[in-house]
Design a protein around this nucleic acid. Structure first.
Lengths: 240, 240
DNA sequence: GAGAGCCGTCAAGAACGCGTCAAGACGCGT
DNA sequence: ACGCGTCTTGACGCGTTCTTGACGGCTCTC
């Protein structure tokens, strides 16, 4: 069952929202302030967050920013402020929707369905990547390869994080460059080669024949878990 | 560059939107009615759609439904109607956001950024093509033919993608050349022969007698699903 | 029945993408 | 100011992919 975290300081609205959510088949968790929200997310990442910006302790925007530091969980922002600037700020900070009070409950629920629909299952972000050979702990920034702790540079971590977040799916060169180096690096496909190379030397059992960090020629890269080997008995390379 | 399709019947709004979008680094395409919108999407799937529900020809909701039949491209709906029921209907039909007029341009642009952020790269394209013999997963760029995974080159994928997007309809040589190789290749009908040939060897059970990737002489090509066989009991080839 | 147009087929050279390496530039802490 | 680790940049070789031209068969037209 999908878990929705409701962050709101008004007890009445909190209760109403929780009831409506449960009536629609979600598991609703409620907290009254920003600190509790961040703590709750740290314990268990919900499938979506409904965040009221008018909170007693922290600025709601600040809460959103902190959430985005560690997670890509969908966030629907509630606010009494209708100013366009506020909306743009929240949306650009990573909010997935911005609903102004007063709002219709049916509409809010529909918008929650929308963000849940778009978010990949368990979008809270992979905290770890583990195979029989490699083990990456992103929270701790620890990499263990074949029992040995291996040191990775910041850029190498971002590279792996981006790939791990895709959970085995293909990550295009553009996305990778944008995620790791920021905007404006779309031309530097060189970087990808260099770092893919370095990472393979660090984490692959056989860097020449990558098993985890694989290239999709012309497309991008992909981080795979332990593969059910596709029965290639010896891959005998014809001697030249 | 990201392509945004604007569907609106008001010339003024259309122009304003297009200008704003271009100023923010998007490629803007504009159409004035539902039919043109569907046609434009059939030709080339944009990265996002801004769809005004008040259209002269088709009901906007109907347009949205048709879009969702073939594509998961992000759609931001514009509407003058503020009724909650309308919003819920559109959102549940697959709209990614619902903005009521009048709206602030900055807000709309922010909301477009949001939906683009969430949508996987090229999510608008055809999802898959499956027959008893061939199975193409465009998102993963995986081709499985008779149980075996087959490798396709980037150009081969674009070729098949373009044909699959037409969903069995004829794709003219011009369109094909334009989609796969870009503008300025209209003269190179040779390429089509070469790649059609290569693809048939890879995906057809009997490359000499194409069942899926069929030629329309003098016209173009077409990608067909499993055909209700037209009673050709053995396809007996007269011995030469 | 000859000719023209179109399509499928093939193969070779060019162009491209990727892995690899190493030398500098840069930034940070001491 | 110095040294260290990290990032950037350019160059090279190799394999793959694309481009290009040529040839033969088929069909439709005259």
């Amino acid at each position: 069952m999908k878990v929705v975290l409701v962050v709101d300081d008004e007890p009445h609205l909190r209760r109403t929202l929780a009831i409506s959510l449960r009536a629609h088949g979600y598991e609703a968790e409620t907290v009254a302030d920003g600190r509790s929200a961040l703590q709750s997310i740290a314990e268990r990442v919900p499938d979506a967050v409904v965040l009221d910006l008018g909170l007693p302790d922290l600025d709601g925007v600040e809460v959103l920013r902190r959430i985005r530091e560690t997670s890509t969980v969908p966030v629907v922002v509630l606010s009494a402020r209708t100013d366009s600037t506020d909306k743009v700020e929240a949306l650009d900070l990573g909010a997935d929707d911005y609903v102004t009070k007063p709002f219709g409950m049916q509409e809010l629920l529909a918008r929650i369905r929308v963000v849940l629909r778009r978010a990949p299952d368990g979008a809270g972000g992979p905290q770890a990547f583990t195979t029989s050979h490699v083990s990456l702990d992103f929270a701790e920034r620890r990499a263990v390869v074949a029992g040995e702790t291996v040191h990775l540079t910041p850029t190498e971590w971002r590279f792996l994080e981006t790939l791990a977040a895709a959970d085995g799916r293909l990550v295009s060169r553009e996305d990778l460059l944008h995620q790791v180096w920021g905007p404006g690096y779309q031309r530097e496909a060189n970087y990808l080669r260099v770092y893919a190379n370095q990472l393979r030397r660090k984490i692959e059992p056989e860097p020449g024949a990558p098993r985890y960090l694989v290239t999709e020629p012309g497309q991008g890269y992909r981080l795979l878990g332990d593969a059910p080997r596709t029965a290639s008995p010896a891959t005998p390379r014809p001697a030249p």
